[in-house]
Design a binder for these strands. Sequence first.
DNA 1: GGATATGGCACTAAAATGATGCTGTTTCCG
DNA 2: CGGAAACAGCATCATTTTAGTGCCATATCC
Lengths: 157, 157
Amino acid sequence: MLQFTKSTEYGLIGLVHLADRRGEVVSVREIAGTYKISRRHLGESLKALCRAGLLKSQRGVHGGYRLALEPEQVALSTIVAALEGEPALTSCETDHAESAGCHVEPHCPIRSPIQRIRQGLWRQMEQTSLRALIDEPLALPGAPSPIEHLNLFPRGN
Amino acid sequence: MLQFTKSTEYGLIGLVHLADRRGEVVSVREIAGTYKISRRHLGESLKALCRAGLLKSQRGVHGGYRLALEPEQVALSTIVAALEGEPALTSCETDHAESAGCHVEPHCPIRSPIQRIRQGLWRQMEQTSLRALIDEPLALPGAPSPIEHLNLFPRGN
DNA sequence: GGATATGGCACTAAAATGATGCTGTTTCCG
DNA sequence: CGGAAACAGCATCATTTTAGTGCCATATCC
Ligand code: SF4
Ligand code: SF4
């Protein structure tokens, strides 16, 4: 349905929260409590981000997580890839080639164009840093694009 | 999982096929046969596109579908909206406000930035016409944008 | 050594999607 | 006229994906 998973949402919330308190080690309990979300589920997301190297963990009684990198260095694409994989858009693009998947592939009329769309989306995420997610000036639609340091659509616009 | 549904894929295949044979009335049977996909499922997608006004149908023994508009006039966003709805990305953006959904909403740190991402994706689809899907010269981003007029989907949300 | 944290899976429940069934209506054509 | 072929509109079932928990191990502080 062209939607982020909850895991991704939780991970993003956690990342933003951790970015706000950079340097500190913050526990899952605290973050989940702040936003009233499932402690366990948030924990799973942060675990995944930790495995992906975006976070560093500290165990033990005063344990928790902290950012492994500066917010400017983390691309949204990396986050999403860690939490729900790269977007595929069509079934023939999935990692495990799924040869059994699609009979159309040899002469599929939409494969290539859709890949272009996907690349555009991916590029947009690559060019959006965690920093950009943080200092969000509540931009409204219609206003000139608030995204300065990234040019999403080189065509027209 | 950030992926188009099969219904959308089928619909797109049908549209591209119909665009190739503009003016003619082509049956679901023929299209499904060409690409070896489920006749029924393709039928459902084309029905939906017909209800959305993108196709015109002709019943009866030599019936089928044909484009209701020129390929230049129909935006990918319109197609996707007809087949799987507008992308929401997060659960708080779904149409039926789902008040019960998210406790975070009042002070959600990621809501607004994610909406920006969604708008960018949507805009990309708005600016991609069916025509652009057809004559796919493996264009790289930077190509001239094909669609100027007709925004069939004045989004409120 | 106990309390509190993360680490890593496996597992169940719920939701979305994929696919099909069924009945009706329209149109052609013999 | 009457049947075949095609779309129209739902309803229904099966499959896949996602959301959410369970369980136990390990690490750290006190
Ligand atoms: S080959 Fe075409 S129809 Fe098959 S999965 Fe890829 S995009 Fe879809
Ligand atoms: S308010 Fe924030 S956490 Fe809640 S659904 Fe929207 S984006 Fe996700």
